[in-house]
Design a protein around this nucleic acid. Structure first.
Lengths: 208, 208
DNA sequence: TTCAATTAATTGAATGGTTATTCAATGCCG
DNA sequence: CGGCATTGAATAACCATTCAATTAATTGAA
């Protein structure tokens, strides 16, 4: 019970197979038959370890998200000197998972789409988005007022999602380097645009 | 043949029903039975006018994309004084389709996901992306060197996609106004960041 | 150690439900 | 009547789920 039992191994086996099949055939084509084949197990074992197909899909998404989160946390822990460096590290981290496997972008998008019709998956998405936003706001608050920090954080988050979307479409083509570069350019522009306003609650932003 | 025949009417009827069903039940739940019910026609008529289900889906996506394109073209034709105004108009245009129906974001995302496993749909996506990029580059080239114009255009495009993605997830909640506002803020920041370099091939951008 | 007994893990054919597709029959209109 | 449009029951394929049967692992008494 305490050792890394068969259960853990089988679960991971099935999750790996699920991601592989989704990447190859999309969410629609991810049948239990194919997943079983890819995992070299039988179809009956899915219900044994995950209850049903939906349970397997949710577990797979949880794994994908936590996987990306782990990569991100690792990169962020390394360099964290200035706020700017920290922001660039977050950007790097959010694309690092994609660099290793551009096909994970496809899986990610498949889950995202599916999440819109599944409250459980939706909740997972929201949690992840919130975490990214708060990670961004922390260093931004040291560079600009809270209001602008929040706006900039949302913009960076949208930028990351948008580039992921494109990465998912450009099959195989790794233009991730360019995405990272453009995100970083934006970070510097945003810092420069608000460099006059520091930690004070200044309101000197007369728009329009 | 020349008149607006029954064929045109039926086709549109089915396409409308398809979009309605996809928005309500997602791509997976878009069965021919439901589409037929929503269109108040029979299931057999799909094969008669579109060959099969896939044909109907492709036609629907074509319609959605050209619909968005039409809205965009309309808005862009109105105001086109300065390059900056023109850029802001493009941004507005790319969210105008979503303002009328926030649920069209869901349909858009569903198609996008599906496109990754259908060469025909993929080609449509690429065409649309290229059009957006070139629309953006034209006014940007009047404000900055070509290289930066291209970068800025790609960033704006990613920003738009990212906000669409979020709009698709936040069911019903219309945070489109915020998305538009943040996009415009970025446009101004990008212009300001490159305001020193005009149409010349200046390279005065010492990065890092 | 050996070997039955017991428990756990795994299989995959059978089941029931869902869906796209077909096509003979029907309705419609000139 | 004759061609066109439309219907919807019938068909066949597919798929998730179940569960009795099979295999593997573990135990513990001799």
């Amino acid at each position: 019970m305490a050792r890394p039992g068969v259960e853990t191994i089988r679960r991971q086996q099935l999750i790996d197979a699920t991601m592989k099949v989704i990447e190859a055939h999309g969410f629609q084509g991810a049948t239990i038959g194919r997943i079983a084949e890819a995992s070299e197990l039988s179809v009956g074992i899915v219900s044994h370890y995950f209850g049903n197909k939906q349970g397997l899909l949710e577990a797979s998404m949880r794994y994908l998200l936590s996987s990306l989160q782990r990569d991100a946390a690792k990169l962020m822990a390394e360099r964290s000197s200035t706020p700017r460096e920290r922001l660039l590290a977050i950007v790097d981290a959010n694309f690092s998972g994609a660099q290793t496997s551009a096909q994970s972008a496809k899986t990610w998008l498949a889950f995202w789409t599916q999440a819109m019709h599944s409250p459980d998956l939706m909740r997972l998405q929201r949690v992840n988005e919130r975490r990214l936003l708060s990670n961004l706001i922390v260093p931004l608050r040291q560079l600009m007022p809270v209001a602008q920090a929040r706006e900039t954080a949302e913009t960076i988050a949208a930028l990351i999602d948008g580039f992921w979307l494109r990465a998912a479409m450009s099959e195989g083509r790794i233009e991730l380097d360019r995405a990272v570069s453009l995100c970083k350019t934006y970070v510097d522009q945003a810092i420069a645009a608000n460099s006059g306003n520091h930690t004070s609650d200044s309101m000197g932003h007369t728009e329009d």
